[in-house]
Write a protein that binds this DNA or RNA. Structure first.
Length: 539
RNA sequence: GCCCUUGUAGUUCAAUGGAUAGAACAGGGGACUUCUAAUCCCCUAAUGUAGGUUCGAUUCCUACCGAGGGCACCA
């Protein structure tokens, strides 16, 4: 009971196979069935028999031993077994959607726990440098992290989304920023930064008066402006990106709580560090890193690596996350081995840290790469892009492409296409779906056996696949699968809508079809809420 | 130089080692007196090159060619 169709087929198959892996796939071509397996070809190897013969054997066996679950089982060369699910079973699945509503698609908690699949997961993303506006790259990582968080939570994990605030006064970046802020440098200098500086003119003046030590002044001035920038970014993330973080974790706090010193001492005690050329090095090369890394510079200040290690240890050891997902831009990928090695040295198993690398986004306009804006210091600020195309389109667009591939963001296309963007396509389907209820009166109790038209069945089939899609996306940390599913669902719904009518049909048919529409709306709402996209009231 | 990622229709993206490589946009042709035509239906069109592994390769391996990124006591 309560199994996904795919798993039910597996169970029937196991009666025949007993040993070995079973794979069930969904063929692209309808003529190869609703579901399909290559089991016979796999068995052919070990049994040294003709795969077609095994396939026929499987088909006969399952047809007899599956209680009418399948309406047809076929074999195809060179040894596929193809399954057609009986209409009755599909109609039953529809009843399940209606009964479970927004819970449909979630795996059973007990099952999840038994399979050791229920985890406490942290996802850290965006965590932008406090030196300027958020970039489009931040957006790509941000939407990925947010959606992945929604997905894993829906699947049943305990999920926390976190933003690491780079606000440490000891950081070289903050000092470098401070140097610019007090007029002694040009790093990170943009018109945007100048605006921030002039807004804080008087506070900066009094800092200059109060603090004579240059290094200290840089740190304080940098931190002051960095905080302004971070606050602005934070507001933007909440209001415009509509991403809700559970925590905003301050790097500076790690220093305040003396955790950085403490880790350094631990590392010394464990004999994992040494001094060379006036700096303190971590023996990361003994744990899989290509070379050792500096923890404390010649100047006596820590590198980014040291507090970051403290931060990650805190995630694993103090806050006890089973898995931690870090989403980084491609320019950070070289940093991974060092962090992993550091964690390994401190007894955190490597595979508990998932680093997702998001490839950089290149902006293209008029067929050429877009030039960086002097005023803002970025190619295009994420905010500008969102103002231009809207949050739903921006979000959908980024989620559509595999984060690991390089993405050319064509500005002309994004604008031009905005009316024909796939996001409108799926939103329109959902709007049509919701619209039907408004115009329909009372109907008798539905009898699902009326749902046997081709487009009825096609729609039920895709609705019933939702739990499988959720599982696949969650297990692979891949929200992109949901994007494709949503487009597919919308297509099937539009098709149903064009082919079959509800108003004006006989009451029995209208009632059954209305239930199908109701179930569709359940799935639309569910998938949209994971993707973080609105269903408009009207279009 | 070394390391990571990547190369699929005109364009943007798909394809746990499986069947005739899927969609969308663009292009061509059709469909509303109807629950919203922002829709539906049909057509045209692609695996960078050369080898290897096997029943089977877009997928795995090797070389080459092209693109992006990294190789800090920046983050």
């Amino acid at each position: 009971m309560n199994l996904m169709i795919k798993d039910q087929i597996k169970i029937y198959l196991q009666k025949y196979v007993k040993d070995g892996q079973i794979e069930i796939s969904v063929p692209e071509n309808e003529k190869f069935g609703h579901y399909s397996t290559n089991t016979a070809m796999r068995l052919a190897k070990t049994r040294r028999e003709n795969p077609m013969k095994i396939a026929k054997d499987i088909a006969d066996f399952l047809m007899k031993n599956s209680n009418g679950y399948f309406s047809k089982i076929d074999v195809a060369s060179p040894g596929f077994v193809n399954f057609w699910i009986s209409e009755k079973i599909l109609q039953k699945e529809l009843a399940k959607i209606i009964a479970e509503k927004s819970k449909y698609g979630k795996p059973n908690k007990k099952t999840l726990r038994q399979a050791q699949g229920l985890k406490k997961i942290q996802i850290e993303f965006i965590s932008a440098n406090p030196t300027g506006l958020l970039t489009i790259g931040n957006g790509r990582g941000g939407f990925l992290g947010d959606t992945l968080g929604n997905l894993l939570k829906f699947y049943g994990h305990k999920v926390e989304k976190e933003y690491y605030v780079n606000d440490a006064k000891a950081s070289a970046q903050i000092k470098e920023l401070g140097k610019t802020v007090v007029g002694e440098g040009t790093s990170y200098l943009t018109e945007y930064l100048e605006e921030k500086i002039s807004a804080k003119k008087s506070a900066l003046r009094s800092l200059k008066k109060k603090i004579k030590n240059k290094e200290k002044l840089y740190a304080e001035a940098g931190a002051l402006i960095a905080k302004e920038i971070q606050n602005e970014n934070k507001k933007f993330i909440k209001k415009k990106l509509k991403i809700k973080f559970n925590n905003w974790f301050s790097e500076e706090n790690l220093y305040k709580k003396k955790l950085v010193d403490k880790l350094l001492k631990t590392l010394k005690d464990k004999n994992l560090v040494y001094k060379k050329e006036g700096a303190i090095w971590f023996k990361t090369s003994e744990f899989g890193d290509p070379e050792d890394r500096v923890l404390i510079r010649q100047t006596g200040e820590p590198t980014y690596f040291l507090p970051d290690l403290v931060y990650h240890l805190d995630k694993f050891k103090n806050r006890k996350f089973d898995d931690v997902v870090d989403i980084w831009g491609a320019d950070h990928h070289g940093y991974g081995p060092r962090l992993r090695a550091g964690l390994q040295a401190l007894d955190v198993k490597k595979d508990r840290l998932h680093i997702m690398i998001v490839q950089l986004v290149r902006l293209v306009k008029g067929g050429e790469e877009f030039k960086m804006s002097k005023r803002k210091g970025v190619f295009v600020a994420l905010e500008d892009l969102i103002d231009e195309v809207g949050i739903d389109v921006a979000r959908f667009f980024f989620l559509m492409s595999n984060p690991e591939t390089h993405m050319d963001f064509d500005m002309d296309l994004a604008k031009e296409k905005s009316l024909k963007n796939p996001v409108y396509y799926i939103q329109y389907a959902a709007v049509r779906c919701a619209g039907i209820f408004k115009k329909i009166g009372k109907l008798p109790k539905p009898d699902y056996s009326f749902l046997s038209a081709e487009s009825d069945i096609a729609l039920i089939k895709i609705l019933a696949r939702y739990p499988e899609i959720i599982e696949e996306a969650a297990k692979n940390y891949n929200p992109q699968i949901l994007i494709r599913y949503s487009m597919n669902l919308a297509k099937k719904f539009h098709n149903f809508y064009e082919n079959e009518r509800i108003l004006g049909e006989k009451k029995e048919i209208a009632s059954a079809r209305l239930t199908l529409v109701k179930a569709s709306l359940v799935i639309f709402k569910s998938v949209f809420s994971i993707l973080g996209i609105d269903i408009p009231k009207k279009m």
